[in-house]
Write a protein that binds this DNA or RNA. Structure first.
Lengths: 351, 351
DNA sequence: AGACTGTGTGAGATCGATCTCACACATATT
DNA sequence: AATATGTGTGAGATCGATCTCACACAGTCT
């Protein structure tokens, strides 16, 4: 087919020049050409220049595939995140890409869409590319044989946003439990006792930790946990809308809501509007993860913010440290969160 | 270094099994093993099973690098966009990734950050990986020797969101000029005559087209273009804030503003708030490209929406059609835009 | 019996870059 | 003069998978 195409158009498919071509043009052997271009070993001055000129003329760029086959590694790092459409991950992906480029690497991005199966197959597919290392936000906190396999083969791995049980490697996370606890304690301090939680799938590490912060704060406040106050949803605006509506259609709905990520916070906002629930008058709202939108609404949304700008860079730096041969114990970074009080929480008197 | 690490920990670095290993375990030659695993040519029944078993046992996964070196192509497609953090591109990247995966390919993402130099070096670096094809949103409408080079080497290329002069290849864009014209005509119809334009760098194709739609509408409305009504900014929220402030700090500022993308629209919103300008009372606003936020504000923002969900998929489909050998003239898809009237534009009486 | 066809297998070349080794020639050292 | 050292170069092996070719043996046909 393809050749047929080319023939039909009468086109010459110009193949990229190889080292052999360069060597031939410069009248030297491949070995000498390689020496001249990579400047190692002994090469005569004139010879080197001849080779350079020939390479220039042919527009020679080394075939990284062939280089990689010998060296065993492609200058690519892989990155598997939950969903690039989540601004949190988009930011991280962007930062990783920038740092990778600085280190002369390209970035392959895969989206697990929070499906373990997808994460596994993506990883396998990238591994067969002899990719040098990975940054992964694992879908599941405990189902992680595939990650263990990576470690066993000594492939550098950095976990990001989430860690996985029994996986001993570099990681970058935030203090999810502490952040969630601060948020819920704040709500309790404002007089709320029926505090809703809009959370993600419990397989996900952050979801677990944030849930446990929520529970801890309730316990500290002397409030009994109540399953009717908890709604689970996938992390998309649409699903969060539904989950919020379910939560607030009960006979005695929460007076405050804590949402575990920014897409859910947005979903809750939309749901509240469609239900005619006003913030902070009828319901108080506080979300984990800050987002652009948070300051556009009226009132602005109070959030627990994460140092997004640092997470991706930190993970990338850890990865490239390993790639450049750094040994030593896995580093486990944990960033602090910060509560940003805006206007979406009000004091409750009647409770 | 690396071996030192391994030795220090006393670890065996288990190398992935090769075909040779499999062949040895199965007591056959590499050729036979290859035949058994890829099912071509003649292979005896027992032999095939022996090989399968051996492969299974060793956890053999072919080295795609080696395969690619022979075949000349890696099952990877590249994608160079302006900025993954722009939700428009994030959505596109996501859709391309999904389709690529369906087609058994991985996706390398690069961000040009709207720098021509970065686009060029990224492309070169990906090309040396023998990547099979590219989807690019070119930074510049006319500076495109690097894209010509791609075409000359017969590397499949699909332009997305933007086309480039003199580049004859598949492309997917929207009707920027028409969309912009509709928006501005709508403003004119609502009685506005001092209509501001907050636009991106003129190197960028969409910026040119939207600008020309803006001009066309003004002309049709009998309004003389006025440079003081136009402000240029990079496509980030922060830059757009500044540009908006400049535009509206004049003695006789616009009564309406048309912004050429969603990040700029958000920037304008922030700027208006900080300046105490109320929408739509003081100023009317209409933006190109819909965004989540648009329905969260009060009033909601009127926009010209693009069929984002289709653009990425369409581009990916074009690319994979080419990769599977489809010949024929380049297809140039152009999607229609749709104006979504919400509440950010008001009728102006005193004009 | 001799010439075929069909089936199954292995040896070796290939893709492109790199690296080890051997060799050649110069100059310097004893 | 004989040996060492330094400089420059090419032949060939290597990475791993694939593919062409040659060969071997079965069975079939004249």
């Amino acid at each position: 087919m393809d050749p047929a195409c080319a023939m039909a158009k009468g086109e010459m498919v110009r193949k990229p020049a190889t080292l052999k071509d360069v060597a031939a043009l410069a009248n030297v052997s491949r070995a000498t050409a390689a020496r001249a271009l990579n400047s190692y070993g002994y090469v005569g001055n004139e010879t080197a220049q001849k080779v350079q000129a020939a390479a220039e003329k042919l527009g020679y760029r080394g075939n990284r595939l062939a280089q990689a086959l010998r060296s065993g590694q492609l200058p690519i790092v892989g990155c598997i995140l939950g969903d690039i459409q989540n601004p949190f991950f988009a930011r991280i992906a962007h930062d990783i890409e920038v740092l990778a480029r600085e280190c002369g690497h390209n970035l392959v991005i895969g989206s697990s869409e929070e499906e373990l199966g997808q994460e596994i197959s993506l990883l396998a597919s990238l591994q067969s590319l002899s990719i040098r290392g990975f940054i992964v936000a694992p879908t599941s906190a405990d189902n992680n044989a595939h990650l263990k396999g990576l470690i066993a083969e000594n492939v550098p791995l950095v976990l990001i946003d989430r860690v996985a049980e029994g996986i001993d490697c570099d990681s970058v996370v935030v203090d999810n439990e502490g952040g969630a606890r601060k948020a819920v304690e704040y709500l309790i301090g404002m007089g709320h006792r029926r505090i809703g939680l809009l959370q993600d799938d419990m397989r996900i590490f952050t979801s677990r930790e944030r849930m446990s912060g929520y529970r801890a704060a309730l316990a500290a406040g002397g409030i009994a946990p109540d399953d009717r106050m908890v709604s689970v949803s996938q992390s998309t605006v649409e699903h969060a809308v539904d989950a919020t509506i379910r939560l607030f259609s009960q006979k005695s709905p929460p007076t405050a809501l804590f949402t575990v990520d920014s897409l859910m916070t947005q979903g809750a906002l939309l749901a509240f509007r469609s239900m005619g629930i006003s913030i902070p008058h009828d319901v108080s709202l506080i979300g984990f993860d800050d987002f652009n939108l948070a300051t556009f609404t009226d009132p602005q949304i109070t959030v627990v913010s994460q140092p997004v700008a640092e997470i991706g860079r930190a993970a990338a730096r850890l990865l490239f440290d390993r790639l450049s041969g750094k040994c030593g114990k896995p580093q486990k970074l944990r960033f602090e969160t910060k509560m940003i009080v805006r206007g979406s929480v009000s004091r409750r008197r009647d409770a």
